[in-house]
Nucleic acid binder design. Structure first.
Lengths: 146, 146
DNA sequence: CCATACTTGATGTATATACACGTAATGTAA
DNA sequence: TTACATTACGTGTATATACATCAAGTATGG
C-alpha cells in the first residue's frame, strides 16, 4: 500500500470525513450551548420530543438513525436532570413513552437562541446555499443506508 | 417554540445531520472491517501513521481535527493490540512519536480491501460525483472552523 | 542561572456510541 | 391453553470523544 493510495483513502473515506466534520461542528454547538449545560446531542433529542410527544423509544431511535441502546442511555442523562419523563405504556407494558417536562421545555427554550448562534456561525462558514445542498446530499446518503 | 420551528431545526441543524450521517456510515465501515477487529476510527489512524511515520501526537491531533486527549486514548487501544509503538522523542522528551508496527502494517493491509468494499457501498448510494462534491464542501466546512 | 510562562502529554470524569446478550411482555399456532 | 417465536427495552463491555486539570519538560526574560 503506497503513499498515493493512503492519501486517496484519507481524502475520500466517507467515514473519516464525516466523523471529522461532526467532531469539529459538534464542538461549536456544545460551546454555544454551554450556559444551558446541554450538549448538542441532548438538544437534538429535546427537539424530537417537542416534535413527537409520547413517542416510543424504538420508533424514535429508528427516526434518529441511532441504536436503540444508545438512545436509551442518552435518555437517562436527560431523565437524571429532570428534563424528560419516562412512562410505561398502557396497552403494551414493554413500551416506554418519553415526554419532555416543563423544566425540559424551559431549558429547551433557553437553548434555542444559543443553538441559532452556533448554527449561524457554522453555516456562515460555507454559506446558506452550499449548506442547503450539502444537507440534501447528506439526507440522500442516509436514505441510501437505512 | 412551535412545531414549524422545531421541524426546521431538525432539518437544518448541521451538528444533527452530520452526527446522524456519521453514525450510520461508521456502522457500515465497522461492519466491513469486522474480520480485522478494527473500527473505522482505528483504520483512519493507521492510515495517518503510514502517511506520516514518526509524527508527534499534538501535530497529528491537529491534522485529524481531534482533541489531543482523544487521540491519546485512541492510540492506547492500538498500542495494547500491538499495532503501533510509542517512542519518547529525542530532542524533546515530552513528545511521543507514533510508529506503526509490522503487525500493524499486516492488519492494515488486510483491512484495506474491506475498507474499499464499505467505501463502494456507501459511495454507491449517492454516486461518485455527488460524493466528490459533498467531500469538497465538507472540507471547506471544516476549514472554516479550524 | 532562576523564575515564570508555555508546551506536551496523561488522568479524572462525563457523555456518546454500538454490539452481544439478557429479561420481560406480547403475539401466535397447535 | 401452552409452547415458541417475536418484540421492547435494559445491561455488560468496549471504544470514541472532549473538557478541566495535572505533571513534567522546555523556552524565555531578567
Amino acid at each position: 500500500m503506497d503513499r498515493e493510495h493512503c492519501l486517496a483513502m484519507g481524502r475520500t473515506c466517507v467515514a473519516y470525513n464525516l466523523r471529522r466534520a461532526s467532531r469539529l461542528v459538534s464542538q461549536v454547538y456544545d460551546q454555544a450551548l454551554k450556559p444551558t449545560g446541554l450538549k448538542v446531542t441532548q438538544f437534538s433529542l429535546l427537539v424530537s420530543f417537542v416534535l413527537a410527544p409520547d413517542s416510543k423509544m424504538a420508533q424514535l431511535a429508528q427516526w434518529l438513525g441511532m441504536d436503540r441502546t444508545t438512545l436509551s442511555r442518552n435518555l437517562r442523562v436527560l431523565e437524571k436532570r429532570g428534563l424528560v419523563e419516562l412512562e410505561q405504556g398502557q396497552q403494551d407494558r414493554r413500551q416506554l413513552k418519553v415526554r419532555i417536562t416543563p423544566e425540559g421545555k424551559k431549558v429547551f427554550e433557553q437553548a434555542t437562541p444559543l443553538w441559532l448562534q452556533a448554527q449561524e456561525e457554522v453555516v456562515g462558514g460555507i454559506g446558506h446555499e452550499k449548506w442547503a445542498d450539502l444537507a440534501k446530499e447528506l439526507r440522500s446518503l442516509v436514505a441510501g443506508l437505512k
